[in-house]
Design a protein around this nucleic acid. Structure first.
Lengths: 119, 119
DNA sequence: TCGATATTTCAACGATTATCGAATAATTGT
DNA sequence: ACAATTATTCGATAATCGTTGAAATATCGA
């Protein structure tokens, strides 16, 4: 269920750019309903062709899906992939040092570390 | 307590490179005791000067700290920064759609989403 | 089929990145 | 002061990245 190191790097890289992170956040907000490429472009004031290349990076990383719908292409976040990425990060952080995760438990608030099903 | 978007991008970018992700994992495993730059270099078979530039990226992002100890420079992970990054990611994922986080809760195993103190 | 809409692809460019060899600091022991 | 150890900085180079304008593709409606 976990990701290869290469894929993790690709997914982190996909989010490690201001425009793409903004796209990601926008898509997350839209949920499973997704959003058309053109609407994302106008919402974020990004040129359609520039956005297209960013969307392709996000899609290639697996964090985002695309589905043609008439003239539009609807993009949406693959929540399983996102949770997998977060899972990988959290798992790496706890590697060999479960007590290190206490920090995450405490300061994050929204994240609680429990069983180790992620191994 | 949260990070600016720029800092989030910088931190994701710091991890979005194979060598740096390997350094990060190695340092996580060493915990608060940290590890000398040279030892990291030989452990990962990376040239000292190349590693130095990667360490500087990690340090500039805030994910990693450096402390001079005699001739060596000991690097260690700032767990607060790591938990902050994970917190930010999780928070973004839940933005406006708390039910989306159910996926994280289910598939991640090690991550459970509870109260929304991250807002 | 034609024109309009929506998106992607292509070629080119400047900017950034990862790596290397060599030179430069900083620290320690003699 | 000198040599040895540890790490960083400096140029240079090849590769990758983000953006742009123009052209191409796909879909729909008249």
């Amino acid at each position: 269920m976990s990701f290869s190191e290469d894929q993790t790097v690709a997914q982190l890289g996909a989010l490690a750019q201001a425009t793409r992170l903004a796209v990601f956040k926008t898509l997350i907000r839209e949920g499973s309903k997704g959003m058309a490429a053109g609407l994302i472009a106008s919402t974020l004031s990004v040129a359609p062709n520039t956005l297209s290349s960013h969307l392709s990076v996000l899609q290639r990383s697996g964090l985002v899906r695309a589905e043609r719908q008439g003239r539009s292409v609807i993009y949406s976040v693959d929540m399983d992939a996102v949770s997998g990425l977060i899972d990988t990060l959290v798992h790496d952080c706890c590697a060999g040092h479960p007590e290190a995760c206490a920090v995450i438990d405490r300061s994050a608030g929204a994240v609680a570390v429990g069983s180790d099903s992620a191994a």
